[in-house]
Every structure is written in structure tokens, then in C-alpha cells.
Amino acid sequence: MRDQAKIIGFATAVCLVCSILLALVSTALGPRQARNKANDVKSKVLQVFGVQVTDASGKPCVSPEELDTLFKQRITGLVLDSTGKHLPEKAVADLNPREISEPDKTSGLKPFYPLYIYEDPETQTRQYAIHVSGKGLWSTVKGFMALKADQSTIAGIVFYEHQETPGLGGEIEKPFFLNRFKGKQLHADGTLQAFRITKPGAQTDMHSVDGITAATMTCRGVENFLNTDFAVYDQYFKNQKAVN
């Protein structure tokens, strides 16, 4: 009996000490971690607009404070729902990663779609960044794509998270592949076209890019979710044009 009491007492003490310690650390480091996360997204968005925020090896070359100011000065974020309707009561900063990248199993749509509008400080021209994500071969691939002011010409694309096979599907994050998207068009005569990632070496046109050898499945996944996401954002752009 005494033994058992001692065991229970000791176990309780250990649990108490451990949980208090963890709670303290978590509260102390929480704000810093949240800022890291927020800055990570911000730097990805700035990157896709072609703003230099990292050096050649991918290390940040601007301080978190500079990043904040850059972002605030040049970028406005909007949140759209899955029908392309603007939700004014939501802010992009409040979205959690799951809400914008985990598609519903039946509809294939995500609850929220962030849209970032970039205004160039010198030329005053606008660019748009849309969030694209969906299943690759093994994992959810997440990225941002920038569109030029015409809302149809691709200005750039980055994939910031995926767990595809390194050296095969993982190559989708490399510049040689991403650069192929630049200048391609989403529309022909004002209607949204199906975007294709073709077999390597096949003929490409204004609505398709060359795929990666030995990464057919990943490319097929990317092609699928790009088209699903384009449709949602296109709806928003169309509504905007109708209003104006």
C-alpha cells in the first residue's frame, strides 16, 4: 500500500514538473514561432513576385522587420471562398495552412483561397499571387503563382512545400522547371484554357509546359490542382471585371 502511494506520488510529481516546464517554454517561445511562420509565408509571396528576399542558397537576406515593411507597403491580401467570392471579414493572416491547402475529398476544393495583390512602387503596375496546392505523388504540394496585371499571363511560380521523391518529383521546386511557366497564358480569347504539363520533349504551346522526365505522376498531380485552383481564382477575376 505504502509502495503504491509512493509510485503514484512520484508519477504525479514527474508529470507536474514536465507539464509546467513545457507550458512555460511554449508560452515564452510562442510569439517568436508564430512570427517565423508568418514571415515564411510573406517571404514566399514576395519571392513569387520577384522581390529578392533570399540569397542564392535560400537563406533570408532581409531582416524580419524589413520583410514586414516590404510586405505591408506593397501587398494587400484578400480571402476568397471556393466559389471565388471575396470574404471581407477574413484576413489572410488568420488563415491556417490546412484551410488553404487541404482539399475536401469529394469536391476537391479548399475552404479558403488567399489572393495577394502586389503594387510595384515605381511603375504602379499590379500583379496577383494565387495559392496553388494539391496532391502530387506522395504528398501535398503547395506553392504560389504570380499573374501579371492582365490576370492571365504567368509571371512566376514557386513550390514552397512538398515531400516528393528527391531528384525525381522533387525537381518541381527547381528553377529550370519553374522558369518554363513564365509567360504562359491561362486564357485564350478571354476563356480559361486547360493548362497542361506535357510529356518531356513534346510540343508545347501557350497553355502548356514541358514536364520532368521520371516525374510523370508528380507532374500529373500538379497539372490537376493547378487547373482546379485556376478555376476558382478565375471566377473571382471574372466577377471583378463584370463589376467594373
Binding site: C18, L21, L22, V25, S26, L29, R32, Q33, D40, P60
Partner: peptide, 18 residues
Amino acid sequence: IATLVILADQILRAYVYE
């Protein structure tokens, strides 16, 4: 051990996020 690992993870996330 679990407590120490969570501590390490939290610290890494706060200071070397990448």
C-alpha cells in the same frame, strides 16, 4: 525524454525555423 525532445523541437522552431 519526451519533455526534453519537445523542448528541443520548440527551441529549433523559434530560432532556426528553416
